[in-house]
């Protein structure tokens, strides 16, 4: 199936020039605390993508019927229901990861990406573009999470997905895991570095004031 250029923009824009985290500044809250390991970062990324995509579709289908006064509450209820389902499924099929994610699964509800996309896109577009928009934004959010998780686990514990990747001989030669990477502030610092690299390459995104 050939994608029209508009569809492509909807799907791929959020991965780069329109990235929810590093350009639109949305959805940092609920997620960075889970990036100390790669595996929970991946699961979080997938969960957010699924929730955003389906919430977008549902709201888009309902958009002609929702009373304006309770719009926000309707969106939150749909989001909360989807998140509860995701969390129930995780409890049943990925119990260990669910334990690591703890309250942060629930916090997907208040992830600004979710509300932001529902308000800005799903309320004004049909179900199919909304679905793509959700997938695009979820992935755009996800790759940042995965990159941060990758570096934090690699440098902080010397493992990836729980498997040792830094060879034992390195440790014998005096290499040490960087414990600082496991601490929460390093997630923020890594995002800052990603923003730096991204904006160095995309000059039009640079801001004028501090």
């Amino acid at each position: 199936m050939a994608l029209s250029s508009k569809t492509k923009a909807v799907l791929l824009g959020p991965l780069n020039k329109n990235n929810p985290i590093i350009v639109q500044v949305l959805g940092i809250c609920s997620a960075l605390a889970v990036t100390s390991k790669l595996e929970p970062s991946l699961v979080m990324a997938i969960s957010v993508t699924i929730v955003v995509a389906f919430a977008n579709v549902i709201i888009s289908l309902l958009r002609k019927t929702i009373p304006n006064r309770i719009r926000i509450i309707v969106q939150l209820v749909v989001a909360a229901a989807l998140v509860t389902i995701v969390s129930e499924v995780l409890k049943a099929f990925a119990y260990d990861v669910n334990k690591q994610l703890s309250v942060f699964v629930g916090l997907i509800v208040t992830n600004c990406i979710l509300m932001g996309r529902l308000e800005a896109f799903a309320l004004g577009n049909g179900p199919w573009p909304s679905f793509l928009d959700g997938i695009g934004n979820g992935l755009g959010y996800g790759w940042i999470l995965v990159v941060v998780g990758f570096f934090r686990e690699l440098l902080g514990s010397g493992t990836l997905m729980g498997y040792q990747v830094i060879p034992q001989s390195f440790y014998e030669a005096g290499y040490e895991n960087n414990g600082l990477m496991m601490l929460a502030p390093m997630a923020i610092l890594l995002v800052a570095v990603i923003i730096w690299v991204h904006r160095a390459n995309n000059k039009e995104l640079q801001e004028e004031t501090n």
């Binding site: 502030p185 923020i188 800052a192 923003i195 730096w196 640079q206 004028e208 501090n210």
Partner: peptide, 23 residues
């Protein structure tokens, strides 16, 4: 501030440094 770090980037770095301080 270096150009690409202006605005959002430097805010993130300050947040991280403040968080380290709070630790």
């Amino acid at each position: 501030v270096p150009k690409p770090l202006k605005g959002l980037g430097i805010t993130f770095i300050i947040t991280a440094l403040m968080a380290l301080g709070f630790m």
